[in-house]
């Protein structure tokens, strides 16, 4: 059994779909942190069978909308003094701001400088987002 120390203060990102940990690691730029970061792949899970977990031994600011978009089933646990002080259940955000960019070459976002890329949730079951400007589906 692999043993990873529990953390005293920080963040545990739990219930990540198997194979999703590295995408989150990269998205949150965790490689830039000086603190300990543990990535646990294929951990046993009663709910999922297997899951990935990320443990970060520091409090960091996270874009929860981006995390929710990557994997809405994730749980974010905030740890203080070795105990969970809050448990955040994520969901698909209604709006994505500067998380993904429109690929439609006919969209104004393809030419307008410093434009804010906005996508709106169109179908939560199918996880479909559409560009707020041209309405093209993000694929």
């Amino acid at each position: 059994m692999l043993s990873i120390d529990s953390i005293k203060k920080g963040v545990v990102i739990d219930h990540i779909k198997v194979g999703g940990a590295m995408q989150i690691y990269q998205h949150l730029n965790l490689d830039k942190l000086d603190c300990s970061v543990a990535i646990i792949k294929n951990a046993k899970s009663g709910k999922l069978g297997k899951k990935d977990i990320i443990k970060i031994e520091d409090r960091i600011d996270m874009d929860l909308d981006a995390l929710g978009y990557i994997d809405p089933d994730i749980t974010v646990n905030i740890i203080e003094d070795g105990a969970i002080t809050s448990k955040l259940k994520l969901s698909l955000p209604d709006k994505l701001i500067n998380i993904i960019t429109c690929k439609n070459p006919r969209c104004i976002t393809s030419i307008e400088r410093e434009i804010v890329h906005v996508f709106k949730l169109w179908d939560s079951r199918e996880k479909i987002y559409r560009c707020a400007y041209c309405e093209q589906e993000y694929k």
Binding site: R106, C107, I108, I111, C131, A132, Y133, C134
Partner: peptide, 10 residues
Amino acid sequence: RHPKEGSALV
């Protein structure tokens, strides 16, 4: 009127 989609929203 502009050829790019979403230009009026901008």
